[in-house]
Amino acid sequence: MNIFRLVGDLSHLLAILLLLWKIWKTRSCAGVSGKSQIMFGLVYITRYLDLFTNFISIYNTTMKAIFIAVAIATIYLIYFKFKATYDSNHDTFRMEFLIVPVGGLAFLVNHDFTALEILWTFSIYLESVAILPQLFMISKTGEAETITSHYLFALGSYRALYIVNWVYRYYFEGFFDLIAIVAGCVQTILYCDFFYLYVTKVMHGKKLSLPA
């Protein structure tokens, strides 16, 4: 464990708790892409199947359990409890356009052709594109609530910090996992224009609005 990965994990935890809190407090999931949340749920479930079989540390097990629980709770709030506030007209990104190619790629490019490893690889690839429906929805509505932009900033920062963690681990531990690194770079690149808007607007107290 290193500081970059720890801060990255905490930023990730902050992001998902922030989103859950926003939906619960405002009793509304307006501006939130349910499709992205479904894909994140899929990411955690397929990645953490080893939750009970492969004990790494208390921290690792606890965080995996929290991520899965918060993801399921968020999906429940969006599609059941506050379903009336779900903006399905703007959440129109076709998930199958992401899940099918990612599933195929996981079969072709992986470290080990076993069920668990292919599911882990699927999860890594899916996570890199899972935010697309959310970013697409913001581009359609032309704006995002400030709390949603904080969620996105924390979520985008987590994988950016993981990239720093991988550089650190390469130089100090001789460890690198090319699949995670390439997917992590793609994931972080997808946030770049959002990061620019966040820094230039939200940090100056303005609302996040895309140029019409």
Partner: peptide, 10 residues
């Protein structure tokens, strides 16, 4: 370099 199969990262 090591490609550890039991993924220790979240």
């Amino acid at each position: 370099t090591l490609q550890d199969m039991d993924h220790d990262e979240l």
